[in-house]
Design a protein around this nucleic acid. Structure first.
Length: 272
DNA sequence: TGCCAGGATGATG
DNA sequence: CATCATCATGGC
């Protein structure tokens, strides 16, 4: 991987392949907005950036090189050898077919609390509405960024304000679940950094103590924010699941609108 | 109007 | 442990 500052931007190259649009908008992250021609604006943790893709490289605008080095490269999982991983899937399997059609969806390494809350909200929900709820949550309970946008709210902020102001989210029955998660994290009953270090099964069990967190939400949180790459099902695992539930093949909705990340996790986690 | 949704829960067999 | 109504909101 190569990182260099050019003019007012930071250019990152030599990390393999990425389908940026699909990676940012396939349902593993909910805070990225298209702001123009191929430009994406996003906020994660206390970092904010605008980026685009150019000749295979990622160009970060108005972003300190320090931020790119200490945060965004890991966020985009740029140090992982996807070519090598994808070559371990059988050539005519669902994963390879999806990669052939859609390119590589990187599995993001997102901040754990944001990811947990977002996937609690995702329960029986669709991407546009999830984004809407998360946006309202950030605008209402989060701090302002330099650009006037909003950071994801802290556990403390949600813990203190959700009971009286939770209605603004219009998240329905999910709001009490979000509150339980926020209070558990705020009160130290759930330590997400500690969960990250647990063996897979124990990590899942720990997350499922939170109301509104079942197998699916736990797995998504583990995969997209806690570094549990082994939650990644194998091609054989996916095929068995698909054959069982879709004897006539995958329905159209699995591609190309929904990316690899969701395919992996949804097929394997929701139906196993 | 009514039905359903890419989940989780709690009650019931 | 399998099934099922229920949850609040929004889209069709």
């Amino acid at each position: 991987m190569k990182i260099e500052s050019i003019n007012n931007a930071v250019r990152v190259s030599d990390f393999g392949e990425i389908n940026l649009a699909l990676t940012l908008d396939c349902g593993q992250a909910f805070r990225w907005k298209r702001t123009g021609d191929g430009l994406w604006h996003g906020i994660a943790d206390r970092y904010e950036t605008t980026l685009t893709q150019e000749n295979g490289a990622l160009i970060f605008y108005g972003t300190p090189e320090k931020d790119v080095r200490e945060f965004w490269t890991d966020y985009f999982d740029l140090n992982r050898d996807y070519e090598k991983i994808l070559s371990s899937f059988s050539r005519d399997g669902y994963v390879s077919e999806a990669v052939k059609k859609n390119g590589t969806v990187r599995i993001l390494n997102q901040p754990p609390f944001e990811t947990l809350i977002s996937f609690i909200i995702s329960s029986c929900n669709n991407i546009p509405r999830i984004k809407g709820i998360v946006n309202r949550m950030c605008e209402t309970f989060g701090e302002k960024t330099a650009s006037g946008d909003f950071f994801f709210p802290s556990p403390k902020s949600l813990f203190e304000r959700l009971p009286s102001e939770g209605g603004v989210l219009r998240a329905g029955y999910r709001t009490p679940y979000v509150f339980d998660a926020a209070s558990r994290v705020y009160l130290g009953e759930t330590d997400l950094d500690a969960v990250k270090k647990l063996p897979e099964n124990e990590a899942r069990k720990e997350l499922e103590k939170i109301k509104g967190v079942g197998r699916k939400v736990a797995d998504c949180t583990m995969l997209f924010s806690l570094g549990f790459g082994e939650v990644f099902p194998t091609d054989r695992h996916i095929k068995r699941s698909v054959d069982l539930h879709y004897p006539n093949g995958l329905p159209e909705c699995f591609s190309p609108f929904y990316g690899l990340a969701q395919q992996y996790i949804f097929i394997a986690a929701a139906f196993e």
